[in-house]
Simulated assay, not measured.
Amino acid sequence: MQLSRRELIGALAALPAVSSARAAAPSGYPARDYDRAIVIDGLGGLVDPYGKEGDPRFSARGWAELRQSGVSAIHCTVNEVGNEPDVADKTLRNLAALEEVIADNPDMFVRATRVADIRAAKAAGKVALYYGFQDTSLIGADLSRIELYHGLGVRIIQLTYNKRNLSGDGAIEPANAGISDLGRRTIEAIEAQKILLDLSHGGQRTVAEAIAHAKRPPIISHSGCRALNDNPRNIWDAEMKALANKGGVFGIYYMPFLVANSKPTREDLLRHFDHALQICGEDHIAIGTDGMISRTVIDDSARAAQRKFHEERTKKGIAAPGEGPDIFNIVADYDTHLRFRMLADDLSARGWPAARIEKLLGGNLVRLYTEVWGG
């Protein structure tokens, strides 16, 4: 059976929690500032590490950790990536499953389609979930589908995922041919529906040409700085600058692509945030972990799941350089549900002022979403 990324995350999260030496809440960044900030994972996931199979309710412990994390909203990928013929059907099932989670836990989660929903969730002590695609392969040449998916709650659409689709070349497509005429029309259709255009996983020319063609500010929701590690999943300074000049936002992930050995440390992650600040400016940076909130426990079961996950991605041709059968998608020093609090503390210790940290935590995404979606 093919193991999807969502299934892998679920398998890892279902393992027992292990205490972390850095699990205590940090103290360097003022707690009052963190508590009032809207904290957004610009590309994440929702998993209950402690839930019982068949129980539609989120577990008390899982919810407690979400609350402790301080996260206000999570961008959840709902589509299946790749050019297989059944990606649209699988995507509709994913959408229905997440809708059921929200319906079964109305005291915890809300579906967000506008910024007002995120603000209301924050005020009510809930977590807002909003939907995004990481590929346009399920749209193809039928651009009327974009309006359909907007009606189902999708508010972010990524143009390509690593390989080539009808819209353009992804990050690991060797031709680096950029976007197609259909890709340009796809961007126009995305913007016409007031959906945010995401250029993560795009090839260098795809990213550059899409930014130039876009009329609204786009996002690169989860990536790293290629000047610090020359990996195709990362973005060069020129495109980062162009994105910021267009009013867009660049999100840093907690992923192995941050360093050449695929095992990034706390300092490696912080260097990427510092570089993004230098290139993009403090109004155009954000967090997009590309992971889950809870801690990943690495044992024999997790290692087996990772091997199978990598085999399936390699078979489909979508594995990027830096992935591997024994490489986990984490920054080990931040592998705790308190990762956003810890990041704020560490950036404060590096001299980042509180107002800048608040922009990074979610303020910049609130501004961008308001501009594209409306309030």
Rank of each mutant, 00 (worst) to 15 (best):
238 A>Y: 07
239 E>I: 09
239 E>G: 11
242 A>V: 14
242 A>P: 13
244 A>V: 07
244 A>R: 01
246 K>I: 12
246 K>C: 13
246 K>E: 13
246 K>G: 10
249 V>P: 05
249 V>C: 06
249 V>E: 04
249 V>T: 01
250 F>N: 12
251 G>A: 14
252 I>N: 05
252 I>Y: 05
253 Y>R: 13
254 Y>Q: 14
254 Y>H: 08
254 Y>G: 05
255 M>K: 07
255 M>A: 15
256 P>V: 09
256 P>Q: 04
257 F>G: 04
258 L>C: 12
259 V>F: 04
259 V>M: 05
259 V>S: 02
260 A>L: 00
261 N>A: 00
261 N>P: 02
262 S>N: 12
263 K>C: 12
263 K>N: 12
264 P>D: 09
265 T>A: 01
265 T>C: 06
265 T>D: 01
265 T>W: 00
266 R>L: 11
266 R>I: 10
266 R>C: 10
266 R>T: 10
267 E>A: 15
270 L>F: 09
270 L>V: 04
271 R>S: 09
272 H>R: 14
272 H>P: 10
272 H>N: 09
273 F>Y: 05
273 F>E: 03
274 D>W: 00
275 H>G: 07
275 H>C: 10
276 A>L: 11
276 A>I: 08
276 A>C: 13
276 A>D: 00
277 L>R: 00
277 L>V: 04
278 Q>N: 03
278 Q>Y: 11
279 I>W: 07
279 I>T: 14
